[in-house]
Write a protein that binds this DNA or RNA. Structure first.
Length: 463
RNA sequence: UCCCCAGUAGCUCAGUCGGUAGAGCGGGUGACUGUUAAUCACCAUGUCCGUGGUUCGAGUCCGCGCUGGGGAGCCA
């Protein structure tokens, strides 16, 4: 096959002219007497290319007028300036072939579909404008994440996907086993004998790469992970999926303030990246998905992020002139309505809340001198609330062991984690960012199932 | 997992007081020399989510179930 030219590249040409070949899928066909127009899209950009077919220049003109929406085409012709509004260039077709026909049963019509319906045809929805834009943005953002950390000398570490540590309290584990489901070997107590399983222990899919990430941070200084993460929680919300991608940087010789600095720089970098490198997509989202998206992302890109302690946050909420559905009290976690009030009404921009009560945070977070709080941070942003959660880690062995004991967390399976506090332990800090939540934030899409190619949620693993 | 809402043509939805089902879009056919989700004319399409019940009669009322969506919890 002679090589095609991507439509996105053609549209970047400063001048028309020349014979080119494009391939793509039909979005719309408009036939009118002796001339027909076919809009095709090849996924390389939003707008696609208009093919112009003329009866006296093209044999089989009438046959081409019956091409169905969704068909795959290969077209060669001259790239010309379009005389009509709506597109800069169009293709005067000299040769056209139908690579793959599509009949009238093609589920994508030339009209708006609901996102719920498109989820039921997830194999075809990437051919729509919205999902084309979402997944181009997602791809570029993934590259931007690596670029950000690489530019700053962070080591990219692949932490294991199969893990035996399920004691982080980060959610239910998916079991990984090769034992036969109906005749698994039992021990004397009648329980399944996992010592005879593939790994000779109970294993599952990772819920976080953080603990392993900490070990690498204590060898390479600054590291990050970016990989798939699994939670078997029966969560049915627009913000949760059973399989998602998480970004977790970890820095040695760093405290909570350093952690917040990194998070702030990271979020600002990604906003600027999207505005510059995905302008076409963001403009589309601003117009069709969330009015005001561009202004919101611009604001975050320029803002200096506010910081306040959990104590201060509670005081602000107690003095709020609005009434909340959920109680405000020192010691309780912030609800989404509280988070949104703080970031949207109190500071009107991104906000770090620092130093939460230890009771509502994980065992590995560093205990503060007040005996009541830990060095945790959440980054709250307008519209979505929490987008990043992080902490300085407890590097003092005795403190860590005492906290695990208080919480009833077995130390033996985490002997390797505790060892890192035994030899050359140092202050270190990191955070976690759900990649999909970032994509949602920068696209205005409000359901996580619509920013994952083939989302896994309770009862859904069809595609 | 809990609470709320919904399920009718390919899609989005209307359907009054319980009386035997409709619109727009999409699709098909035809017309039209430059369209932009083209336009105009004509044509076709139903397991009213399933199941049990109330009733002379159920898309409509009631029970149970399934599916989807939203909110909460959990969290990223």
């Amino acid at each position: 096959m002679s090589r095609r030219t991507r439509i996105g590249d053609l549209l970047k040409r400063p001048t028309p002219g020349g014979t080119v070949t494009v391939c793509g899928w039909v979005r719309s066909l408009r036939a009118s007497g002796d001339v027909a127009f076919i809009s095709i899209n090849d996924g390389s950009n939003l707008d696609g290319m208009q093919l112009v077919l003329e009866r006296d220049r093209l044999p089989s003109f009438d046959d081409f007028c019956t091409i169905g929406t969704g068909a795959a085409l290969r077209a060669s012709g001259e790239l010309v300036t379009s005389p009509a509004a709506g597109q800069q260039y169009e293709l005067q077709v000299q040769e056209l072939s139908v690579v793959g026909q599509a009949d009238s049963a093609y589920p994508l019509q030339k009209k708006r579909h609901s996102f719920e319906y498109l989820r039921s045809i997830a194999h075809l929805r990437p051919r729509t404008n919205t999902f084309g834009a979402v997944f181009r943005l997602r791809s570029r953002l993934a590259q931007a994440v690596h670029r950000f950390f690489d530019e700053r000398g962070f080591l990219y570490v692949h932490t294991p996907i199969i893990t035996a540590s399920d004691c982080e309290g980060a959610g239910e584990l998916f079991r990984v086993t090769t034992l036969p489901p109906n005749s698994a070997p039992r021990n004397e107590g009648g329980e399944i004998d996992f010592t005879r399983d593939f790994f000779a222990r109970k294993t599952g899919l990772t819920v976080s790469g953080q603990l392993e990430g900490e070990l690498f941070a204590q060898a390479f200084g600054d590291i990050y992970t970016f990989g798939p993460t699994f939670r078997a929680e029966n969560s049915n919300t627009p913000r949760h999926a059973a399989e998602f991608w998480m970004i977790e940087p970890e820095m040695a010789f760093a405290d909570l303030a350093d952690d917040a600095d990194l998070a702030e720089e990271f979020v600002r970098y990604l906003c600027n990246f999207a505005l510059q490198e995905c302008a076409e997509e963001l403009t589309f989202f601003d117009r069709h998905i969330e009015k005001g998206l561009l202004a919101r992302v611009h604001a975050v890109a320029k803002a200096s992020f506010a910081r306040m302690s959990y104590d201060e946050a509670i005081r602000h909420l107690e003095q709020a002139p609005v009434s909340f559905q959920f109680p405000v009290q020192w010691g309780l976690d912030l609800q989404k309505e509280h988070e949104r009030y703080l970031t949207e009404e109190v500071v009107r921009g991104p906000l770090f809340v620092l130093n939460y009560p230890k009771e509502i945070k994980a065992f590995y977070m560093r205990q503060n001198g007040d005996g009541a709080t830990v060095a945790a941070m959440d980054l709250l942003v307008p519209k979505v609330g929490e987008i990043i959660g992080g902490s300085q880690r407890e590097e003092r062995l005795d403190q860590l062991e005492r906290r695990m004991q208080e919480l009833g967390i077995a130390q033996e399976p985490l002997w390797w984690y505790l060892d890192s506090r035994r030899w050359g332990s140092c202050p270190h800090a990191g955070f976690g960012l759900g990649f999909e939540r970032l994509v949602m934030y920068l696209s205005g899409m409000d359901n996580i199932r619509d920013v994952i190619p083939f989302p896994r949620t309770p009862r859904h693993a069809e595609f």
